[in-house]
Design a protein around this nucleic acid. Structure first.
Lengths: 155, 155
DNA sequence: GTCAGTGCAAAAGTTTTGCATACAG
DNA sequence: CTGTATGCAAAACTTTTGCACTGAC
């Protein structure tokens, strides 16, 4: 069996390069590092968070925050990444090709369980279609108390 | 028979006053106007949008943007209003006196469409149960491009 | 009268932009 | 070589805060 991870990143990289070429844009080390960092940490990054991590990991490149913003916007415009809005401020970005998952979060201990449900996804598509929307993504978080905490909370 | 969907404005006002009294806060004309404007326009407001409308409608009051922010944050903290973030463009607020619903957000123009779907809600309950979670709430936002923007983007 | 609320302006925090230089193609 | 990309800093925005004055209770 092939190494799934590398194949996926290579594919991602190739299609990113194709998009760049198609638009007469250049493939720079900054853009590579931003894509790679987004890929290897499957988190949702704020621009500053991503910038901080990159500065820590590749100090020699000295990537500026403006480049991070410009590249994230580029990635989003070309549908390589998507952004969602969390909490108070700012966007968080994630790669659009990641296998989709949602989160169930325990309000007591913070435990996060990932899940994925085809039935809900299908229903979301249908809801969007009914309202003339072209769906590009979603955020779904379920809040509750996990099994362990339910037992402990017998107060 | 009392309608469940929309709490009357008077009821809303009374409960807002109660909250203020309970917290030793004062009922001011600015706060009243902000609540009333949120109520009478069935929209989701950005702070500036709300501020603009209020300045237009009640120019004599000369409500400052800081007061709008402060009041919106107060309304949110006391669960009278809720907010939705949508990226760089900031938050949008709505009163929390509506029955539960989720949001579909246009990533291009920020338009927000409300929807509610029993099938998804049921499925969420089931997913939680399967994983030993006691569900207490959820957040679901669908992102996409609204019909109007889809047409405009065909350049 | 007391003290929270307000407008204003300044500050703080984010994101974008202008410009000279660096560098991919 | 030719432009695009970049870093830096300034600018543009959005939201919060400090302060003296106003006004609700």
């Amino acid at each position: 069996m092939k190494k799934f991870e590398n194949v996926e990143y290579d594919t991602l990289l190739v299609s990113f390069k194709e998009i760049l070429k198609r638009n007469k844009l250049k493939f720079t080390s900054q853009r590579e590092v931003i894509l790679k960092t987004l890929y290897s940490n499957n988190e949702h990054f704020t621009p500053e968070g991503l910038h901080f991590l990159i500065k820590e990991k590749y100090p020699k490149l000295n990537v500026g925050i403006a480049t991070v913003y410009r590249t994230l916007n580029l990635l989003e415009e070309s549908d390589v990444a998507t952004s969602i809005s969390f909490g108070t401020q700012g966007k968080k970005f994630e790669l659009g090709n990641k296998p989709h998952h949602d989160h169930m979060i325990c309000k007591n201990c913070g435990e996060i369980i990932e899940f994925e449900d085809k039935a809900i996804e299908r229903r979301q598509q249908q809801i969007a279609r009914e309202r003339g929307f072209k769906l590009t993504g979603h955020l779904m978080q379920l809040y509750g108390i996990c099994g362990i905490c339910q037992k402990q909370i017998k107060k």
